[in-house]
Amino acid sequence: MLSATVPPPVTSPSLPRPRGPVSAAVLDALRGGPVRVDVSGADPYGDDVQLALHCCYELHYRGFDGVDDDLEWDPALLAVRGDLERLFLAALRADVEAGADVAAEVDALLVEPVGPDVGGVSHHLRRDGELWQLREYVVHRSIYHLKEADPQAWVIPRLPGPAKAALVTVEHDEYGGGDPDRMHARLFADMMRELGLDDSYGHYVDSVPAETLAEVNLMSMCGLRRSLRGALVGQFAAVELTSSPGSQRLVRAMRRLGCGPAAIAFYDEHVEADAVHEQIIRRGVLGPLLAAEPGLAADVVFGIRAYLHLGDRLGERLLDCWSRGASSLRGDTVGA
């Protein structure tokens, strides 16, 4: 478990290309320029805002090549991040119906729609997805999975005892139970290489649209802001409750398309792992958390619905592009 395999040297990703005035101003600030960012009037779901947010958050994860690590705590940049978050959060609060019945929300997620007309990306990939679409799907997912479980790790110190212990049980599993070769981020990287994709951290940020960045930005926002800890737990619950059947469909898609063992292994692992995680999240995290802090129920529901809302937006983009035979990525960067 602690055997001394020498890891490759850690590298930070390069700065991405700007997508508008807001992201261009944030990128200038990251290069050491003055912080002059005006977010007023920007589209909260658009490429410009979502890339700017992604860059602000990445300072808290792996940073960027050539960017001062201490900019993570630069007051002016943190103020920009705050402005971007207020914009994003206001849009989500407006677009997501409020509720506080966590049990009903969970029950709804545990009902599995079946039949030939069920929509959704994993259903499409299982039924008649093509290999280039599957590879694009993996590119979109790489923004999260190459740091799988990291955004949720921010919430650990913010949870009361029993909920913390249960959440760490799930996180420990995501991190391979102590075995770096079984870390889910590592299994994902293995799959990417087998599919002929570049597994270096952040490689595909320039290729993915706002919809992809927004999903991960929601996780980072809720993880980094203690006031949104309930929403983070809701977001995590929504992933763990819906992942197992979705992963099974992706295993079937990979097998049908003749993918190799590493590609199948990633989603195969998630069928069984997330069947367990569902139980731990419901019994160990949600139950004790809401018993200790009943006031968080509305935020838990918000986290679930906001994540599903952003997932729907991404799914619509993928299926819309693919139905026209077009790439869902920005530019032809994968050579699929």
Binding site: V111, E112, P113, V271
Partner: peptide, 30 residues
């Protein structure tokens, strides 16, 4: 080998004896 393991009791799992969430209620969408 997980710290917590979910073992199937409903016998519907395609990975029996490991749970694969096949016990879940299904709704048909046509």
């Amino acid at each position: 080998d997980r710290p917590v393991n979910a073992l199937c009791l409903c016998r519907r799992s395609r990975r029996y004896p490991i749970c694969d969430t096949s016990h879940r209620t299904r709704t048909r969408e046509d």
